[in-house]
Design a protein around this nucleic acid. Structure first.
Lengths: 198, 198
DNA sequence: CATGCTAAATTGACATCGTCAATATTGTAG
DNA sequence: CTACAATATTGACGATGTCAATTTAGCATG
């Protein structure tokens, strides 16, 4: 079946091609036609699997979120039972993923380039967030500055980690490349937190 | 001079047109030709002022950073002398800017769409960061979790605020729209900090 | 085995975009 | 007044997303 008129698994082949093109040539080169060519099919073949370019990008972003989740999942599972260690492992994996694959990470959060209603992307991103929820469960969040404690600690941690990762990638604005001469880690920003007893 | 063969101030007119198109029709519509048409000139006229599309986007992003800075500057100047109030004002302005103009804010940090060496953009972004540096000066940053304190409090605050703003805009991944039913503010994430005496 | 249906891929076309080269126009310095 | 430099126009090219029409292959049904 391979090489014939019918590809067999063109949808996944296009996603794989897109991941390669994105990594190699950047987001501007990530076109429907380039993916088609890379997969060895004609320029209009993707139409049968993706309604438009946004759908293809959404599918690639969804694959990015799955890998993002897998990276955090593996790191957490490898971190032992201590909650602080698990949180740190997840944060490290989050940042490491972003820094090692900045183009994919950027696409994952480039909402303008997505299909606004892609259920696969929604599910994949929620699965990724679920790991953060898991490792921040039972986190106590006390502030002594007298301000109202409006936000869940999950969102606090996520904001901190995500912002740091995004800034490390962008490296514009402020001291170049976040002012670090080595890869950034969760320890760089880890705030003071305590878990509930147990 | 207006309406004639020579425009007079086409460069700024194109930036203004671009800001309008970005706000109204989104980043996909922000094309060189659309800006030219909106400014009432032919499709190739921008070539005399911007070498390519990336230069135009960089100029628009630079204008975004100037407005971003002005918003924080005004908020800080309006916040009185208390350091905590000034920090809060800057953080609020940062987040408010991002939420009220998400497309412009996104473009400002969309490094892939910029000219990598635009000095105007670099200067504008640094000026914006300078406000954050100012309001975080003398901030004490103590952590009791035994982790190394690697990062300057400026970068910690910036990561937190930027991440929260970016997440509030993206609103994908995790609880919809950051789980808030009202506009996010700096108070939502303000950590416990103290300033040096004085 | 033959037949027809359907999914999937191809070709060809079109509008739009960024970019370039050639040309035309204007303002201004000499 | 004249030449020149800056700026704008026109026309063209390749690349892209998308659509319509067509062709092919796999599969079920008789």
């Amino acid at each position: 079946m391979s090489g014939g008129y019918h590809h067999g698994d063109l949808r996944n082949a296009l996603i794989a091609a897109g991941l390669g093109i994105l990594e190699r040539d950047g987001p501007e080169a990530l076109s429907l036609r380039a993916c088609a060519a890379s997969a060895g099919v004609s320029h209009a073949a993707p139409k049968n699997h993706f309604a438009d370019v946004r759908r293809l990008r959404s599918a690639i972003a969804a694959e990015g979120f799955r890998r993002h989740r897998d990276a955090m999942r593996a790191a957490v599972d490898n971190a032992g039972p201590a909650r602080a260690a698990r949180l740190r492992a997840a944060g490290d994996a989050y940042i490491e993923f972003a820094v090692s694959q900045p183009k994919l990470f950027t696409l994952m959060f480039a909402i303008d380039k997505h299909a606004p209603d892609d259920p696969e992307l929604l599910a994949a991103s929620r699965a990724s967030y679920a790991v953060l929820e898991e490792v921040t469960e039972g986190l106590r969040y006390e502030r002594s500055n007298g301000l109202p404690n409006n936000l869940a600690p999950q969102l606090y941690i996520w904001s901190l980690v995500h912002g740091f990762a995004h800034i490390a990638i962008t490296a514009r604005f402020g001291p170049g490349a976040s002012g670090l001469s080595r890869p950034p880690t969760y320890d760089d920003i880890a705030p003071t937190f305590e878990f509930d007893s147990g």
